[in-house]
Design a protein around this nucleic acid. Structure first.
Lengths: 255, 255
DNA sequence: ATTTTTTTGTTTGATTATGATTATATGTGA
DNA sequence: TCACATATAATCATAATCAAACAAAAAAAT
């Protein structure tokens, strides 16, 4: 892990929680307390955090900056990208089917489309956010039980995998962090990978939703080979995509 | 937990409650009374609280600042009613405990209080809405899995009851539709009643949150006798309440 | 491949925070 | 008022945290 990456993670946590202790950060980022202190000293020199005994708090000015940024990020261009991908995915679903909807922002875009377009669909999901939205839109929904991962609001873990293995889906719609013809479908989290893998095994047909930034990216853990799922993306002009197309069906959204 | 974090929690509690005792804060935040006194001395030097014998109250100027914020948060009158009930309930929770939070709008009011005031609490819930909100506020949360009832966004059913039976809670906080000394705790839905009953069996202490309109009301299905739970309400002047008080503890919120 | 630079973890002593103890002060009820 | 219980302040020992210096490891440059 590179320094700037660690700094970003520290700021991200601070942004979410206002304050963080050295020991907490040390355990979370798998580095020594001394390194965390150096990081915090650096960030303090940049005016981004204020150090206190035991840890650090977000500096006043940075806190206000962040607030504006996150508001802007909510309406980012990425969002439009994800919406058109979700549209293509929604067209695959037939009325009356039972589908699995993975946690994530891309799959979230599928929710209003499913509610409006597909009659009598039943949705199983590991995201408490998705479950709440779907229920609000009167879509039959089942949630996987277990501990909720705070970063993504998704339920993961061995218990969740066991529940998945007792279910059968007509289709699954999964988010992914990296797709290449060689490395396959990859994510940074082992637990999440295990979850996705379990879902794919129980589903008649799988769809991976990935915007252009994911194509050609490789992450830590492999979920599955590319040919195990249909790729839904908005990428149009890249050699990597051609290599993937030799292994599996690719649905490209035009926008 | 770092000092500033504790200071914030003390202020958050005072903001909700106007005053707090040293022993109360000590138990809640899992530190010695001596540390709480030092904290209060610090906060007094900063002009944020005024110390009194046994504890502290919000300082005048800080209280007026806060007042403007609470005006913004003000919603419907019923909501205000539920909020003060939730305040009393939140004060029952000690740091580090595992609690069950029932689905419902009254219990929803507990969520921000838990997040702000109680450190290291773990919340188990059958509401996907609650789970999402809690996770957003960085509270450790576990969700019961199963079909989501569309009307309430709550997970119910025999499978959910089975999951509950494998867990143990320090405290449970339940919504209810009717409370009388004779008919006990009642709701209109059999599945929900079974769920609440299962939770009460697994919890060391149970709290039923019921606003004035629920006192004296009788619904279709009985969940339990009144004496199985502490009643938290805002009702003050009714004979029914006196009859209930003979059977169980009643916490009345003053507002 | 070797040197240089950067980054990291460890050690040390100093600083700070915490909890226990004790003596004093405050509030409460007879 | 007096006794009694509880709260507080002050003190101390212990534990946690910190900063600085150093050594080891990793990365970059030669």
């Amino acid at each position: 892990m590179i320094i700037v990456e660690r700094h970003e993670k520290i700021l991200a946590l601070l942004e979410k929680r206002q304050q963080a202790s050295v020991s907490e950060l040390s355990a979370l980022l798998l580095v020594s307390p001394a390194t965390i202190r150096r990081d915090l000293a650096d960030l303090e020199n940049l005016g981004q955090v204020t150090r206190v005994h035991g840890g650090a708090v977000l500096s006043e000015q940075y806190a206000s900056q962040m607030h504006e940024q996150t508001i802007n990020e909510k309406q980012s261009l990425h969002q439009e990208e994800k919406r058109v991908i979700a549209q293509q995915a929604a067209l695959q679903v037939r009325g009356g089917e039972t589908i699995y909807l993975d946690a994530g922002t891309t799959t979230a875009c599928l929710i209003p489309l499913l509610a409006q377009v597909v009659p009598k669909v039943t949705v199983v999901t590991n995201s408490v956010n998705h479950a709440a939205k779907l229920a609000d839109l009167s879509v039959a929904v089942m949630v996987i039980g277990g501990s909720v991962k705070l970063a993504t609001n998704a339920v993961i873990g061995s218990n969740a995998v066991q529940q998945i293995q007792q279910l059968q889906f007509d289709r699954s719609f999964l988010g992914i962090n990296g797709v290449t013809a060689e490395a396959g479908l990859t994510t940074p989290d082992m637990e999440e990978a295990a979850m996705k893998r379990a879902v794919m095994a129980q589903s008649r047909k799988n769809y991976v939703l990935a915007d252009a930034s994911k194509i050609g990216a490789v992450n830590f853990v492999k979920v599955n080979d590319v040919n195990e799922a249909v790729l839904v993306t908005n990428q149009t002009d890249q050699s990597e995509l051609e290599a993937i197309r030799k292994q599996t069906q690719v649905i490209i959204s035009e926008a």
